[in-house]
Computed example of a mutant assay.
Amino acid sequence: MLNTVFKDAIVNRDKMLLVLKGPKYEEILEKARKNWVEFTPTKENSIIAGIDSSFNNTKFQGIELWATTAVSIKSDGEILVDLHDSGLGSDTDLSRIASRMEIDACERTIDVVDLVLMDGSLHSQFMTRQFSLDALVVKMMKKKDNVIFIAKTSNTKKQFEDLGSLAGDIFYYNHVSNNPGFSKIFIEKKYGLEKTIASTFVRLGNSTPIIKLEFLGEQHDEVEIKEIMNKLYKSSVGGYPYALKLAHNNCKISDKELAKMVSLLGLSNEIGSREVLG
Rank of each mutant, 00 (worst) to 15 (best):
N146M: 02
S273E: 13
S273M: 14
T208W: 06
F186T: 13
Y173G: 03
D169L: 06
Q125E: 11
K226M: 14
I103H: 09
N179G: 07
D104E: 14
L265G: 12
I79N: 10
D104Y: 01
K260E: 11
S236W: 06
I148L: 15
G238S: 02
F6G: 04
F160H: 05
L2M: 09
E257Q: 14
L267E: 05
N249P: 06
L65H: 03
G87L: 02
S273N: 15
R100G: 07
K231P: 03
N178C: 04
I97T: 02
V137I: 08
I47E: 14
L65W: 04
S183T: 15
T208K: 10
V37E: 15
E44V: 14
L166T: 10
V5P: 04
I97S: 04
L17G: 05
E188K: 06
K190I: 04
K43C: 11
E214I: 00
A98W: 01
G77S: 08
P241D: 01
E270P: 01
D169R: 02
G62L: 06
T196R: 07
V116G: 01
S90H: 12
S207P: 08
S72M: 11
E27A: 14
G87A: 08
E224S: 12
V5G: 02
P180N: 03
I97N: 04
L213M: 14
V262Y: 04
V223A: 14
I253L: 08
A105Q: 07
K189A: 06
L216W: 04
N146L: 00
K142T: 06
K212Q: 14
F171L: 09
L117K: 04
K157N: 09
M127W: 02
K158Q: 12
E64Q: 15
N230G: 09
K142L: 13
Q159A: 11
N155P: 10
F186W: 13
T200N: 12
I79L: 08
R274S: 13
K152T: 05
S99F: 11
K34T: 08
E27K: 14
V19N: 12
D85S: 11
E222L: 01
L204A: 06
T68C: 15
H84S: 15
L136S: 12
I185P: 09
L265K: 05
D111L: 02
E30V: 02
M1C: 05
E214F: 04
S86L: 07
N269E: 12
I51H: 08
I185D: 06
E26Q: 12
